[in-house]
Amino acid sequence: MLKTAYFPLVALLMVVSVIVGCSKSVRYGDPKGVETVTIEFGSTDLQSIAEQMTRSILTSPLVVEGKRPLITVQDVENLTSEYIDTRGITDSIRTELARSGVVRFVVDEDAMAQQISELDRQADDEYYDQEVAAPKGEMVGAAYRLEGNIRSIVKQNSDIRDVYYKVNLQVWDIRTGILEWSDETEIRKVLE
């Protein structure tokens, strides 16, 4: 009789312990830490590529102290079979190079529409003082163009999945068409 009376309580305790045991907690992590949640292209790959390529450009003859060449950035072409936000790679490279202060960037293709829109807006003398408004026809073209691509080779069997990424970047002299700098970096990830 006593055992039967305790049965609902025991059942309730079991349900509560299962719920508590299965609940997940949230914590903050290191955004610069090595991320290996899945084998797909991740934050560590993006950060490593951006850092390695930026440092390589910094040691190239293209960058001479005080010269600060003008560069325009084109998106890194994604030639892999997975979705990769390649704009994130070029944005990171551009940010780190801009921080170094050795190069300057001009408006790229993606931001051109906003630039023209802003110039058009300022050209409206009904609203803007034309003495200080940015005039049209004074934008400066880049001397160099940064572009590149990312490729991958994926192999797998029943036990293992191997992904190899290769990122190649180039800087071209826009006037002459000469390749001024090029470098590549590789990443291999294995899921066992």
Partner: peptide, 11 residues
């Protein structure tokens, strides 16, 4: 100088 670098794996 600047931000901390990202941790990079090395095999």
């Amino acid at each position: 100088l600047g931000d901390e670098e990202a941790w990079k794996p090395v095999y």
